[in-house]
Each structure stands twice: as C-alpha cells, then as structure tokens.
Design a protein around this nucleic acid. Structure first.
Length: 427
RNA sequence: GCGGGCGUAGCUCAGCUGGUAGAGCCCCGGAUUGUGAUUCCGGCCGUCGCGGGUUCGAAUCCCGUCGCUCGCCCCA
C-alpha cells in the first residue's frame, strides 16, 4: 500500500473525546424543542440542485461556488444540501403540511459547502435548525429568538450577542437597493476590490464588509432601516417591543444583511468573540416569499440555524467539563475459567444494575496490567475473578477510589453488594 | 480562489552554523509468580510528508509538490 487514506478535506472524524459535548448539545436541543412544542422531522441530505438554486439564489456564493453538485446515474442534477431550510420547505409542501396549518418544526444534521476550511468552518458541518410556518406576526420571530436564548442558558453559555435587522419586503428592498447603488456609484473610487465586485451582484452585502477602510463610506450610506415600507417597519417595531418584554437583550444592527436571497423582513444573528473569526453561532430570519416561490400556497415562514461545531467550540472554550460516560464496575478476569464465567456474570450485573456501566477486562495480559486498565477505565469498583474465585464461587471486590480492604462476595450476593457500594459512592 | 504558519515515533515535541535521529507520554514486560493510581529497570515504536537538486555526507540548505492549520472572501 503506497498511500494512506485520509478524510476528505474539511470533513472531520468526531472521535470519542469530542462526543460527550456533541451528545450534550444534541440532548439539550431535543429537550429544548420539546419544551416549545416544536416537532422533529428529518429530510434527505441530497436534493435536486434546482431546489437550492431557486431558494438560496443563483447569485449567492453558496450556489455559485460552494455546492457539491453531481449528476446521478439517472442523469438528475443533485446537490448535497448546503443548508436545511430549502429541504424542509420542499418536504412541508410535498406532504401538505402547510395546508391551512401552522407548523413548528426542527431538524438537525450535516450540511455541505465547498469552502476553504478554517477554525469553525468545515466542508461537512452540522446544524440544528428550526422553522415556523404559517405565522405572519413578529410574535413567532420573538419566540424563535427566545428559544435560542434559552438554549444558551441551558448550556451555560454567556457572552453571546443578538443583533437584529429588517430587510423589508422585496419591493422596499428593491427601492432601497437602488438608493444604495446610486450612493456607492458616487463613491466608486473609494470602494475596495471585493466591494466593486459586489456592486453588481449583491450591493447590500457591501454593508457588512469587514474591511476597516470601508467603514466610513458605509457609515455614510443610506440606512436600510430608514427605507422600510410601513408594514415592515411596524413588524420590526413590534418585534423589538416583544423582545424587550420577554427580557431578550438585542441590538439593532442596520448593516446586518444575510447572504441568502430568500430573507424578508426580520433577520438576526448571534455572535461570539470566543472562537476564532467565524463568529456567527446562530442566525436566521423571515422568508415569507419562499414557500410560494417553491410552488406552495403563500405561507409566511421564519427560522434559524445554529452551527454545532461552533457551539461545541464555545463549550470547550468555556472550560466546562463534559460529563463522560464511565463504567462504574470493571471485571478483572484472570485465567481461562474466569474468562469463561466473566461474560455471563457481567450480564447478570447489568440486569441488576441497569445504567451503571460494567466493563469486562478483555484481552488478558498480566494481572498487574489488568488492574491498571481497571484503574484507567475510571471505574470505582474492580471485581476480580481468578481460578481461586471461580473454584469457590466468589468474587473479590476491590474499591479503586478509596482506602478499604478488599472483600470476597459470593456470586449470588454480588448485585446487592455492588448496588450498595455504588449507592454509597454517589451520596 | 488568495495570503501567513507548520509537516520528525500512535500523541506532544527537541534536534544550534549539514556529520547519518532523540525525549516525555502511551502501550507491553519485570522488580512485587494474583493487586492499580507513586517509584525503579527494560522493551516496542520512525520510508524525518513526498519528489528532485547542492554536497564526500541532508531531518537540517535550495526548488517543486502534497497535506494540515490560521486568516481573507463568505458563512453556521
């Protein structure tokens, strides 16, 4: 073999030391959505490429250069999903979920974008995503932000900032866009290369440029907030009232523009300063036109997505220790007769003590190394079985975490004895 | 697509101005023929990312290439 296989760039293996955090995040998310009455659904990772082109927008970076697209054997052009919303909307329409109904849904899973990986940004990354359909008012916008805020609280995360903005309706956005382009054209000579490029394709994106040299120019630009239609302005103002009443801290950020074409009215983003330059951990917005655009009945909708990798990064950076699942009991088996008895005895213990965690010292080795492995396993109790114990039908019980002389225990009494030891250890 | 940094043992890394590769951790065995977490001894572990060049001699210098990583763009 002249070549070791490596994972595809930007697609990471999640090893055991990572999983306690992932499991924590996923478990809490499940509890969170249950608490708000959101239902989980799952949709395929692959959809027709056209679904994403039409929903996300032809001229977005995602569609233009980041999608994994391929022709399948039947000649269909398919894509790995770069985000979750389009697939959820497609499924909701396809199964009639939006027919005279309101829906509050969530999903989670991998997304794929062909970007240059860096900290917090990967080609396969994972999102938790929730969407509410059929609610036109700002109350559901506020609820979605409340859900996210509660999630941070459940996970013990602090230091996250919520910034909100309104993009208005497609109509008011078009008018504003014309004003903005006129302004930028007048200052064309001060634009940087990236902004010049975006002037034609997506001028509003110039507003959230990170280039400090552009700051002054941007500050002088007409503000989106000043050019909203009356309905959008009222929606936005009521949203702010609701957020304040619910005790959700937020800032209006007139320059916040999201990268996907389908957003209308409310957009928002939670950011952090704790993990590299990819600072957005959760973001979303309202997309009232998308369902109709994809062939459904006109249905107002709003949702957000959060990046699990970024949340896990925050948790790790916060110094919190993830609860690792350790076995409570480790079975040391010395010699062939003990090995023969060990598996069954371990299962009896599992029957009697479900959830405790019983690990069998497989693979032999010296007695010393077996005890060493028992210690390393994190178990509190080592049960030692050798030829002598098998012959007499007993087990040697040794406490690994405290000073106490070890004792012998007949097999029949073992579950009760161990239960008592574990109970004492916990209290 | 564009920049910066880095590739030496499974992991973390040392190796000065070129002299033919090391430490710690891990793992295994022993000191203690059945007692771990402390100690001591021993063992295992390498195409020095890859290819080419310079040289008597390259982990070290030069060129190329691949990979990883951080950042830009963009985004979760």
């Amino acid at each position: 073999m002249d070549r070791k296989f490596q994972a595809v760039r930007g697609m990471n293996d999640l090893l055991a030391d990572q999983m306690p955090w992932w499991q924590l995040v996923e478990r809490r998310a499940r509890e969170l959505f249950a608490d708000y009455g959101y239902q989980e659904i799952r949709v395929p990772l692959v959809e027709h490429a056209e679904l994403f082109q039409r929903s996300i927008g032809e001229h977005t970076d995602i569609v233009e250069k980041e999608m994994y697209s391929f022709e399948d054997r039947g000649g269909d052009l398919l894509s790995l999903r770069p985000e979750a919303t389009a697939g959820l909307v497609r499924a909701a329409i396809e199964h009639g979920l939006l027919h005279n109904q309101k829906q509050r849904l969530w999903t989670a899973g991998p997304m794929f974008r062909h970007e240059r990986p860096q900290q917090g940004r990967y080609r396969q990354f994972h999102q938790i995503d929730c969407e509410a359909f059929g609610f036109a008012g700002p109350d559901v916008d506020a609820e979605l932000m409340q859900i996210a805020a509660r999630f941070w609280k459940m996970l013990g995360l602090s230091g996250l900032r919520l910034r909100i903005n309104s993009l208005g309706t497609p109509d008011s956005r078009r008018q504003y866009r014309a004003l903005l382009v006129a302004y930028l054209e007048r200052h064309r000579t001060s634009l940087d290369a990236d902004s010049l490029r975006r002037l034609d394709s997506n001028p509003m994106r110039i507003l959230d440029s990170r280039n400090p040299a552009m700051r002054e120019l941007i500050a002088g630009a007409p503000a989106l907030t000043d050019h909203l239609d009356a309905g959008s302005r009222e929606h936005f103002e009521r949203l702010r009232v609701l957020l304040s009443a619910a005790g959700i801290a937020h800032e209006v950020e007139p320059r916040l523009v999201r990268g996907l074409d389908y957003y209308s009215r409310t957009v928002f983003e939670w950011t952090t300063q704790a993990v590299g330059s990819q600072d957005a951990v959760c973001s979303g917005g309202r997309y009232d036109g998308l369902v109709a655009q994809l062939g459904g009945e006109p249905t107002p909708a709003v949702g957000w997505a959060l990046g699990i990798e970024r949340i896990v990064g925050l948790l790790r950076a916060s110094g919190a220790a993830a609860p690792a699942a350790l076995p409570a009991i480790y079975l040391v088996l010395a010699g062939e007769p003990a090995e023969r008895a060990g598996l069954l005895l371990a299962d009896r213990l599992r029957d009697a003590l479900p959830g405790a965690g019983v690990q069998v010292g497989l693979g032999g080795g010296s007695f010393k190394s077996q005890l060493k492995r028992a210690d390393m396993s994190g178990a509190g109790v080592a049960l030692i079985i050798g030829d002598d114990e098998v012959a007499r039908g007993v087990v040697t019980v040794k406490l690994l975490r405290e000073d106490a002389s070890q004792q012998e225990c007949p097999w029949e009494e073992l579950p009760g004895r161990v239960a008592a030891l574990l109970g004492r250890g916990k209290s």
